[in-house]
Every structure is written in structure tokens, then in C-alpha cells.
């Protein structure tokens, strides 16, 4: 191995007062750093590739199946078909499985590897560190979720072409549904990121996120019907992916759901609460 070489340590003895010319380490540099981090581990690519793959697979299987059985479908059933939702429901419904992993890992891997010590040594302003991490996660999720949603939509509609009911982006509520499916995935990522910062455990954050998004809405069915109906619209996850991707009436859902954008906003509210709680915990606790 190399011996200590000369030019590495400039002869100037580093003085003990702070170098005035140096910029303060800040948000932009930390954002660049977090992009380097998220982009330099293979699990990010695998999980996000899987997200696109399952979104597309859902769209192909469901839309192709619908088209294949179209001739034998009753007029009544045909009228209930929401072509937009058929193609993009998988983005939200299956995509959340993947993004929860990416979102949790973005912060919990710092703890499982204890790299958090080095991260907070080079950027001791923890709020900046946390904000940069969340921003990079959100940007990465957007970069994948929105294209996945549009891809699933277009592929699905082309498969539904033969049925004559295919949707286009200019039809009422269609564009907003396609965007909502992508946004739901992004919010899911931040939801689990906040949980990760609170729990500091990968397994803990992923299981609690799945529990809140999938298990709780199912368990809630055990409640008396009136309670369930009153609660279900307020729950994160559950039927939210169905409601926000619907371009027609939401009558078929339980408990009179809110308008799609309100459902999405409520879910974003939960994510915001977790994000803030996680940030406060990170700033207060020993690293």
C-alpha cells in the first residue's frame, strides 16, 4: 500500500481559526450528497424497476383481460367499467409496496449501518440533513412514479382500444387520476420515510407502514358497520388507491369516501405528520 505521500498535506500548518473563505456547508451540497447516496446502492434501482414493472404488468393483465372478455360482457357490466382506473390502479395499489421499501431504507439504512454518525458529523445541522434526504427521496419517487403512471395508462388504453371505451387524457377526471396515482406513490414514500426516522429500524418501518396501509383497513371491518363507515374515509391506505384513481362515481366504495383530491390530501396530511414527527425525533435524539 502507498506510503504517505508529500502533496497530500500542504506544508501550511492548518491554523486553528476557521477558514473564512469557506462557504457554510448547506442544503444544496447535502442534496447533492443524498442523490449520490440513493443512486449508489443497487437496492434503489431494483426496487424502483420493480415498481415500474408491476405497474405495467397490472395494466397489461387487467386491460388485456377486459378486452378479451368484452364480447361476453353484459351491457350493465360494461357501463360500470372505468378504463382509466383499470389501467392505473396497479400503480398505486402495487407501487406502494415498493416505494415503502425505498422510503424506509432511505433513512433506516443510515441507522442499520450506523453511517448516521458520519453523515451527521459532516452535516451537523440535522434539520438540513433531514430535509435534504426527504427532498431527494421525493424527487426520486416522482421521477419514477409519474412516468410509471402515464406508461401504465397509455399501455392499458391501447389494449382496451378494441372495446371502444378507452379513455384519453382530455376526458373528465382522467389526467387528474393519472397524476393522483403517481402522487399517491410519492406520498407513500414520504409516509414510510417519516416512520423510518421515528422507528430507526428497516423491518419496523416497513411492517408498520404495511400494517397501517393494508392491515388496519381490513381489521377495521370487524367493527360495527356504522363505526366502520364513519372511519373508513379517514384511514390512510385501504381504499384510497381505488378512490383516487376513479374517474366516475365513487358510490361503489364503503363509507361515502371523499372526493379523490380530498382523499389524497388526507393521506398527505398523515404523511406530513409522520415526516414532522420523524424530523423532530432525529433532531432531538442522540444519533
Amino acid at each position: 500500500m502507498a506510503a504517505l505521500t508529500g502533496p497530500a498535506f500542504p506544508a501550511s500548518p492548518a491554523s486553528s481559526d476557521s477558514p473564512a473563505s469557506l462557504a457554510r456547508a448547506g442544503l444544496l451540497g447535502t442534496i447533492r450528497s443524498e442523490f449520490t447516496k440513493i443512486g449508489s446502492v443497487r437496492s434503489t434501482y431494483w426496487t424502483l424497476a420493480l415498481l415500474v414493472a408491476v405497474s405495467l404488468a397490472w395494466s397489461i393483465i387487467v386491460c388485456d383481460g377486459t378486452a378479451a372478455h368484452w364480447a361476453h360482457t353484459s351491457p350493465q357490466a360494461r357501463s360500470g367499467v372505468d378504463p382509466t382506473q383499470l389501467s392505473i390502479l396497479g400503480v398505486a395499489l402495487l407501487g406502494q409496496l415498493m416505494i415503502v421499501v425505498v422510503g424506509s431504507l432511505a433513512i433506516t439504512s443510515e441507522y442499520s449501518t450506523q453511517a448516521i454518525s458520519a453523515s451527521l458529523t459532516v452535516m451537523p445541522r440535522r434539520g438540513v440533513f433531514y430535509a435534504a434526504k426527504a427532498a431527494v427521496l421525493a424527487a426520486t419517487a416522482m421521477l419514477v412514479a409519474f412516468p410509471a403512471s402515464f406508461l401504465a395508462f397509455f399501455v392499458g388504453q391501447s389494449l382496451l382500444h378494441s372495446t371502444g371505451v378507452g379513455a384519453t387524457l382530455v376526458k373528465p377526471n382522467v389526467l387528474s387520476a393519472v397524476l393522483a396515482a403517481g402522487a399517491y406513490v410519492v406520498i407513500c414514500g414520504l409516509f414510510s420515510f417519516g416512520l423510518g426516522a421515528l422507528l430507526r429500524s428497516t423491518a419496523g418501518a416497513i411492517s408498520v407502514a404495511y400494517g397501517l396501509l393494508f392491515l388496519m383497513p381490513v381489521l377495521a371491518r370487524a367493527l360495527p358497520m356504522a363505526w366502520y363507515d364513519a372511519m373508513v374515509r379517514w384511514m390512510p391506505g385501504g381504499q384510497t388507491p381505488g378512490v383516487i384513481t376513479s374517474t366516475t362515481s365513487t358510490q361503489s366504495f364503503n363509507g361515502h369516501p371523499f372526493e379523490p383530491w380530498v382523499e389524497l390530501a388526507i393521506f398527505a396530511g398523515y404523511a406530513a405528520v409522520l415526516l414532522i414527527a420523524g424530523g423532530v425525533a432525529l433532531c432531538r435524539r442522540d444519533a
Binding site: 476557521s18 477558514p19 469557506l22 457554510r24 456547508a25 449508489s40 446502492v41 450506523q114 453511517a115 454518525s117
Partner: peptide, 30 residues
């Protein structure tokens, strides 16, 4: 400290790194 790495260099636990990352990417991220 405004720019911590220019004032203090620290090595705590050498093993506390993300094993999935390459050495160059690790240093670059810091």
C-alpha cells in the same frame, strides 16, 4: 461550525458504512 469537514476530520467506527456503496461514492457523498 460552518463547514465542519474543513475544521474537523473524524473517524469513529470504520465499519459504520453502507456496505452496498462503492468506496468512491461513499467518499463523494461525504
Amino acid at each position: 461550525i460552518g463547514s465542519p469537514m474543513h475544521e474537523v476530520g473524524a473517524l469513529l467506527d470504520a465499519r459504520a458504512v453502507n456496505g452496498g456503496r462503492g468506496a468512491r461514492a461513499h467518499l463523494l457523498s461525504l
